[in-house]
């Protein structure tokens, strides 16, 4: 019993270190990707091609004064970045990077991931509300509306996968794709998932909660120093989570020839991450009402139709 607990603790610590590194790497990657899209070099000075830039940035942000404005709702203001970080971290616990590399395999793993990731909406609302700033409040409103709306198409788009694999466990779903990845028979679900996931993690073209040309920085406008870092990190961690989930659900997870499973998993995830970055640096931003109608009038019916067709075909084949 105690040993089990210890193992889980060690695994969690490793996972925490891993996601911190991942987030840092993603920030660097985004800067490089955007720079090359825009005919720039991006960070070049610190380390090889600026690879240590993130260390320097993190150090700078750590040493910054932690400013808590006078009129904020103090405890909520302090708690919000913690909640967002914890929520982002919790989702990691069930993600299998390889047949052996995971913290815990839950038989309702998928539900668990969606459950904890919707905590993000709560924390953003907390940040927006407690900041006592109209821009932050608007960002918080937008974010909650967006995350809650887009969770519905996400869930419905993964239902066919659950129907096909007959499992809620992420390992079970991966194992079920031994023959072929589900993207081959569920391309529609995959694209719905990817689009809705982009909205879920507040990235362009759905980055309204932090639309810098409208709301300055949205919900995190009043945050500085380490608290800002936590929001910033959580965004990239969430990005990694949704891409990892897409890999597991549609691309067959760790499975692949020759290379070790862990490497396969990372390759697939990073391809998706690159796609998200590609979108971000190409598209303009939608307006709030357009984004909502896109969700409710297009994505949701499409996801439902996809679910229906999948069910019919399964019944017919049987």
């Amino acid at each position: 019993m105690l040993l089990d607990l210890l193992i889980i603790l060690i695994k969690s610590a490793v996972a925490l270190a891993f996601i911190s590194l991942t987030a840092m790497f993603l920030v660097w990657m985004e800067r490089k990707v955007s720079a090359h899209f825009q005919m720039r070099y991006g960070p070049m000075r610190v380390g090889w091609h600026g690879s240590l830039q993130l260390g320097a940035d993190a150090l700078k942000l750590l040493m910054k004064e932690d400013i808590i404005p006078k009129l904020v709702d103090r405890w909520v203001f302090i708690a919000a970045p913690v909640v967002v970080f914890v929520a982002a971290f919790l989702a990691y616990l069930v993600i299998p990077f390889s047949p052996v590399l995971y913290v815990k395999d839950l038989n309702i793993g998928l539900l668990y991931v969606f459950g904890v990731s919707s905590l993000t909406a709560l924390s953003i609302m907390m940040a927006g509300w407690s900041s006592n700033n109209k821009y932050a409040l608007l960002g918080g409103f937008r974010s909650v509306a967006q995350i809650i709306s887009y969770e519905i198409p996400i869930l419905i788009s993964v239902l066919p996968v659950i129907m096909l694999s007959g499992s809620f466990s992420l390992i079970g779903i991966t194992e079920a794709q031994r023959a072929f990845p589900y993207i081959l028979i569920q391309p529609v679900a995959f694209f719905i998932y990817l689009i809705a996931a982009t909205a879920e993690v507040n990235r362009t073209p759905f980055d309204l909660p932090e639309a810098e040309s409208e709301l300055v920085a949205g919900y995190n406008v009043e945050y500085s120093g380490m608290k800002f870092v936590m929001f910033f990190f959580a965004e990239y961690v969430n990005m990694f989570t949704v891409c990892a989930l897409a890999t597991i659900l549609f691309l067959g997870g760790w499975q692949g020839p020759i290379l070790p499973p862990f490497v396969w998993f990372l390759i697939k995830t990073y391809v998706l991450l690159f796609v998200l970055m590609w979108w971000r640096w190409t598209f303009p931003r939608l307006r709030i009402d357009q984004m909502m109608s896109f969700c409710w009038k297009l994505l949701l019916p499409l996801a439902l139709a996809n679910l229906l067709v999948t069910g019919l075909v399964m019944v017919l084949i049987k």
Partner: peptide
């Protein structure tokens, strides 16, 4: 204008 609409890349193209 593109930057205002959230598209960052055209901004740098234009300045180029």
């Amino acid at each position: 204008f593109a930057l205002d609409l959230g598209a960052v890349t055209p901004f740098l193209y234009c300045f180029r």
